[in-house]
Design a protein around this nucleic acid. Structure first.
Lengths: 332, 332
DNA sequence: CAGCAAAATGTAAGCGTGTACATTCAGCCG
DNA sequence: CGGCTGAATGTACACGCTTACATTTTGCTG
């Protein structure tokens, strides 16, 4: 087994042409007699010949590989977006190289290894690595598309979310229900996305002359939502919790149920990200998120742009997806 | 931007050595003066030099790339295992190339593209593609590690599950509770994994002289579990449903709740795969699954074996993870 | 049918490494 | 100090493809 596969020179000999012609037969744009191309492709098919991508990359520098830097694939919020993105990339004949950075002692080592494979693009999907580290390691050789940190003039494209309006919408609804004791549950307090969400929430509350508590010990997991809510509900008595993501929101909901708090009567719960399971019957969490697939589409579009195009900055508006966790739907 | 990166020849000139020496400095096993190696590595670090993997692969045929063929990354059952596997591969200095095959008009096109990149191994993680297609496309060049179809003497390693004992355990428990009207809800009736699970279930029931109904319209999604359960509960009146996976089991649970059936009193529910969310408070589904991480560890071990090693067949025993969906825990 | 332009194909030089083989070098013994 | 040995390094080619440039073929026009 592991038999060496055929090379373009061998195929060329079989077809009675030169290896250059074989190469051209596989290059879409090059001009050649259709009959010759057809003959070569048929022969290639027959003998199972496929051009070696390594050799191709070696002299074009177009690997069609995209490094996707994520925290973990296990978290639905990342996984669902990633799934869409991978699908799009594959439609572009690109292949994703997944760098899973959570729990990884040295994320930079991982990026260094990946950079070795001449990836055309890097998508910093999670905020697990710093943009500056990424720039240093891929030494500006490949466009980096971030969706987290602020960019401050760095030569990098990005796609980010705007949930200002959606947050105002949710908060107004909750205030109209008479809720006054708000809490924000962080995922990772130092994360930029987290800070933004907190900021929008804070602004929306201030418009009503209200303040809020912050719980900083979350980690985006169901368990941390559950644990923090259990502590919180025994101590202060909030009547609305906004969570940095949906998983924690569900944890909060389960903790509330276990402690005998009624949702949404006693406690309203809001999540972020709009993962599929948030709208399952048993959860029905109100969540703030972009329309599904929009972020991945934007990322894929940017990637498909010519390499010398200037960096792109896209902002995507979030929506509210109402669930039962915030009580009756607003009029509208 | 996109400045061309340094080559080993340029670095060699800077270090006053030949490119061969640079190459040796990066190869772990090769004998050379420690001082020279240190000097070269320091210089490489300083100038951001990293050997080009494409060029390396071109003459060793050791890409350290692994193609992971999956259905979708969005499904927690696949995603959680995948996450573990990717982590392991990264520890081995390997990089995963993810082929997402669901919804993809032509999965074989995708595999053909991937085969171009000289992947060292292929893991057929989902049963979305046929082993024979995979063998044909990667033309026996790379070991294929399947976890689905039966192999029938094909020259391929595999890891598969054995849930016979676990299924007997669950079924005995349910029968002891007096349940008699069993239903099995398929994910994809034609899938081998599905057939196996059905078979174990059938055998376990037969041991008690019982038979069961099959619902073949599931598709592994929450929604399909919900829909089929809604139909089922109105028609026949099962008192136990075994589902091909956990997501459908949760769908069944939610449908039962919506229709006023009490779980587990009126209806017991069992899932497969042991996804994390199955044991959340709001679900607490009893599920049949291997110990977390064992499958990925086995796959990673097989991949790390020398390439000329004979195919490996590993069978992994499943356990029951009890939840509230099957009533009181059995004695034990 | 000569003559010429355009299309098709061939030639050969890389792309950046690894490695077999050749060479040099350092150290040791007689 | 010559000669020998093993370690360290250099030389040069191969890996499989793309591509600029050279050459041949084709198709037309006068």
């Amino acid at each position: 087994m592991r038999r060496k596969s055929m090379t373009s020179v061998e195929l060329a000999r079989l077809a009675g042409v030169s290896s250059a012609t074989v190469s051209r037969a596989f290059a879409a744009g090059s001009s050649m007699k259709p009959a010759t191309r057809a003959r070569i492709l048929a022969l290639a098919d027959e003998h199972g010949f496929r051009p070696n991508a390594m050799a191709r990359v070696l002299n074009n520098s177009q690997s069609r590989l995209v490094a996707l830097v994520v925290n973990t694939v296990a978290n639905p919020a990342e996984a669902e977006g990633l799934d869409q993105l991978i699908m799009r990339l594959q439609e572009q004949e690109r292949l994703p190289l997944v760098l899973r950075c959570a729990d990884h002692e040295d994320r930079n080592r991982l990026m260094r290894i990946a950079s070795t494979y001449q990836v055309d693009h890097v998508v910093l999907y999670s905020d697990a690595v710093s943009i500056d580290d990424a720039i240093a390691i891929f030494h500006s050789a490949v466009p980096i598309i971030a969706s987290s940190e602020p960019l401050a003039g760095r030569d990098v494209s990005d796609v980010r979310l705007d949930a200002r309006a959606a947050t105002v919408e949710v908060v107004s609804h909750l205030v109209a229900q008479g809720r006054r004791r708000f809490v924000y549950l962080c995922g990772r307090a130092s994360s930029h996305v987290d800070k933004q969400r907190r900021g929008w929430f804070s602004a929306a509350l201030e418009a009503h002359g209200l303040a809020f508590d912050i719980v900083e010990h979350g980690d985006y997991s169901y368990d941390s939502g559950y644990k923090e809510a259990a502590l919180l509900l025994r101590r202060t008595r909030p009547d609305a919790v906004i969570c940095a993501n949906d998983l924690m929101a569900i944890g909060v909901k389960d903790a509330a149920a276990a402690l005998g708090f009624a949702v949404p009567t006693d406690l309203a719960i809001v999540g972020h990200d709009g993962v599929a399971l948030a709208s399952w019957d048993s959860h029905a969490i109100t969540t703030i998120a972009p329309r599904p697939g929009v972020v991945s589409a934007a990322l894929a579009d940017i990637i498909d742009e010519p390499n010398d195009a200037p960096p792109v900055r896209r902002v995507i508006e979030c929506m509210v997806r109402w669930g039962r966790s915030t009580g009756d739907l607003p009029r509208s």
